[in-house]
């Protein structure tokens, strides 16, 4: 059961609207390496995890990613407040505006809507955790790129926080993978799937 708590994980306070920047940051809402995909990937992978540490890790990181989705939504929302006629014609935002006005829609900045084909649930502990390591790095690079494109200090403050979380998650998934390997070694198995074969 999920219970909503009426607060963000980290404060989002954007002073200056900037639709062009919003049209870029939306990628971490519904893009291929965004927070929606991250949360669904981890929360779905956990069912076939054979070990308690990994069930816990995927549940907790998947839940945190839902909180990050909310933070990205808050950034996009606050960047598109009180727009003028001129603002909505901003190159880069006009295409988004015609489809979604100033609603927050899960899409990549490059225009394609969120797709489950940007993630995988293989049902195998080694394959899934290795995907998760890559996913954290890809999200980290997306945040690097947002920091390259943005000079809004209010936005960058939040993006920097989210980027650092990807690094911590990478570390924990790597540790989880090692714990899984130790447990599989103890049973003298390697390339088999303990959640399916045993």
């Amino acid at each position: 059961m999920f219970i909503y708590e009426k607060k963000l994980q980290y404060p989002v306070k954007i002073a200056t609207p900037n639709p062009k920047l919003a049209a870029v940051i939306i990628s971490q809402y519904g893009g291929p390496d965004g927070e929606l995909g991250a949360s669904l990937r981890y929360l779905s992978q956990r069912y076939s995890m054979p070990y308690a540490e990994l069930k816990g890790l995927l549940t907790d990181i998947g839940t945190e990613e839902l909180g990050h989705l909310e933070m990205i939504g808050a950034i996009v929302h606050q960047l598109t407040r009180d727009l003028s006629e001129e603002d909505i014609r901003t190159a880069g935002f006009d295409a988004y505006f015609v489809d979604h006005t100033v609603g927050v829609y899960p899409t990549a900045a490059s225009g394609f809507p969120w797709s489950a084909s940007s993630m995988q649930v293989k049902g195998d502990v080694i394959a899934d955790l290795t995907e998760d390591l890559a996913a954290e790095q890809k999200a980290r690079v997306t945040y690097d790129n947002i920091l390259r494109l943005s000079d809004d200090p209010d936005v960058n403050d939040v993006i920097r926080f989210l980027r650092e979380r990807e690094i911590v998650h990478f570390q924990r998934f790597g540790e989880g993978l090692r714990l899984a390997k130790e447990k599989m070694d103890a049973k003298n198995v390697y390339y088999m799937n303990p959640s399916f074969d045993s």
Binding site: Y10, Y143, D144, L147, D151, P153, N156, D157, R160, F161, L162, R163, E164, R165, I167, V168, Q171
Partner: peptide, 17 residues
């Protein structure tokens, strides 16, 4: 963004705010 200094690996210090 982390409890651990050892895991704090920032992107580019100069644009951090």
């Amino acid at each position: 963004g982390t409890l651990f200094p050892g895991l704090n690996l920032p992107f580019r210090r100069e644009i951090e705010t």
